[in-house]
Structures are given as C-alpha cells and as structure tokens.
Design a protein around this nucleic acid. Sequence first.
DNA 1: CTACCGATTGACT
DNA 2: GTCAATCGGTAGA
Length: 201
Amino acid sequence: MSARPLPREFYDRDVVQVARDLLGKRLTRVTSEGATSGAIVEVEAYRGQHDPAAHSYRGQTARNATMFGPPGHLYVYTIHAKFCMNVVTEPAGVAHAVLIRGVEPLDGLPLMQQRRGREPLVELTRGPARLCQAMSVDRTLDGWDLTLGREIWIADEQVLPTPDTAIIASPRIGISSAQDALLRFFVNRNAFVSGPKRYHR
DNA sequence: CTACCGATTGACT
DNA sequence: GTCAATCGGTAGA
C-alpha cells in the first residue's frame, strides 16, 4: 500500500471534483491512544461565496477563517455541541470545502468503540459528528495541514473501489437553502452512509 | 451583555 | 415517524 498523503495539488482543484475523488480514499488519524482509519464513503461539497448553504457564504469570520486559507487544510467546526470535519479545496481566498459525512472503519475499531461508548459497528463512523468523535477530531485540529502525513491525513490510496457507476449524487442533508443542488456524493449501498434510508438513493 | 439558532444526534411514540 | 438536548458562533441591544 502506498500510504503517502495526498499532495497539495489534489486539493487545489474544483471542489466537486475533489469531493468525488475523495470517495474510497483512506482517512487516518493517529493520537497517543493509537491509530484509526477508514475509507471515505460520503461527502458534501460547499461552494463558498456562491453557495447560500456554505458557512463562508456571508464572508470570513473567526469561525470559518480556515475555509479562506490554502487548500489541503482541515476545517473543523462545532454544530449542536458536536464537531464536523471538512477538507479545504481550491486556491487560498476561494472558500470552498468538502464535508466528510461517513467513513467505513478499517483500523482501530476497539479504540473507536471506546470513544463512542461501545456501540454497534455501523454507528461508529456513520454521520459527520459521530466520525469526529470516533477519530478524536475537535477544534484544536482546525487548520491542520493534511499533506504532512501525521496526526491526521488522507492517503493517496484507493481502499474501496468507487467507479462512477457506484457514486450517487443527491441533495445535501440538514440545510435549509440550496436544497436543489446535487452536491452530496456517496458510495451506493454502503452501510456507513448517513441519514435514514430515504437518503440512501 | 442577551437571544437566537444550527452542514446533528439519539431517545422516544 | 417526532422531538428535545446541547453550546459555541453570531447578531443585535
């Protein structure tokens, strides 16, 4: 396995292209407690100042500053007293990002179960806030450079086959504007895609 | 300073 | 299916 981190150029592209290409890649998180990893199976693209549903739509604030920075960095925000993680794409100044909503666990399952409170496998990393809890991601990682290959990174490694025929586009979950845009992408029939069943197609 | 609310989750009918 | 917990970010007085 070629577990090199994805290079900066991977993230410095169109946000929709990056979102689709992230499906099936390995996300790894290492802490003093140990390593966890999983295959990305569900993402959403947010198109900055062109997108009323994006945090960055109304300009830069202390909260979303990372989205306005260079590509390849992690944007972590809090919502309903929980954390969600995004990958910043496109050049600095273009506040686009990809929200990671679901991963299929590969390594460190006992550690993830311990952090989540000993739950069924399927509830460990299904949903943006659950996977952050399982992988111990919080606001201290906001702005982290994903190309460094330590702490947290995404490997240039296709651990799940994701041909175009296996990728489904749908409206994004949980937003109140731009509900017609098909900017959510997920792996068809994967058990770690979030939401009720009606969101699985 | 107060008031409102969300890119969510989990418990409950 | 419905609904409340939860708390940091943001806007407004």
